[in-house]
Amino acid sequence: MRTHRFTVVLILVLLVAVIYAVVYSKVLSVASNQGQTVTVVLKSLNVRSDFWQTVSAGAQVAARQAGVKIDLAGPLQETDAGAQIQALEEAIVRKPQAIVVAPINDVRMPGIIRRIRSAGIRLIIIDTPLDIEEPKPLFVGNNHVEAGRLAGKTVAQLTDNRPVAAIIGDSEHSVITSERKKGVEESLIPYLNSMYGTYYCDDSEDRAYQIARFILHGKHPINAFVTLNEAATLGVAKAIKDSGNVKPVRLIGFDSSVYEIQLLEDGVLNATIVQKPFNMGYLGVKLALDLLDGKPAPSDTFIDSTVITRSNMYTPENQKLLFPFIQTN
């Protein structure tokens, strides 16, 4: 009799427990992403850097959508590898579940990446691919070769498919420059004698100006410049303006700044290829959160670029790309 009553009570307790568990977990579940921690380390947190501010805005939107709080860190200067490494070390101490980093090229970087991994932190690389050992970390970045191809196609379009173009970049050693150059060349190869030559201005507007002047006054007529960075664009634009538009020369640049926008309005700069840093920041963080949720994530995510011309620069989509921020008075 005793054992019977005991059995009954036991069965009931178990039943209650099972029902409670089922109800708690299934029917009344409250979804939440609480507890996910992501640290984003950028190349620069400088408010004057529109590019990195836009990246961080994108990152924050991704975090807000998921209801997660992220930590943003990074040096003031885009070249300050030491400060970035320190920021990464601090992040490792905080031990977030994932780190999204736009690494500055430095010899110490692979070491710190290894430490992030051995600490069990998920890693997402954005902007600049890192040459480190397997397994390759997930990467989100701009497809600079594709952007170069876009520039090349635009050149062909603007010159009625008879392009003769000179490329002016900032430095032979810059990865971005060489990738963009590669893309431009790829898309110009089908056209006969389309490549005039490639020059480097060492990120100097003056040098770009000199080079452009030299080319413009040279014997061989060219009908297009492709300038791979802002300094080159501004220098070449100045040279074209100074030359007084004797022959129509097209100018296709990269990126955007107020000066480039004015040149676009002016008509000197015929097109500029702009990246979408907002998307990079957004996708970087989203990918990290997907990874933490155990969702499948592609190993490489490339963000396409957009060709901005005078005619489409004030469309709602492109305005946001050219003027990412709303200034307050």
């Binding site: 939107v61 807000r64 959508q65 998921a66 209801g67 979408k276 907002f278 709602p316 989509e317 946001k320």
Partner: peptide, 25 residues
């Protein structure tokens, strides 16, 4: 945390949206 406000015009063009760029992309 995740809620937001957005504005569209009668034709459905976005006037204001916090994720405007994402929608365009």
């Amino acid at each position: 945390k995740r809620g937001y406000v957005f504005i569209v015009d009668p034709k459905g063009n976005i006037v204001y949206h916090p994720d405007q760029q994402l929608i365009y992309s």
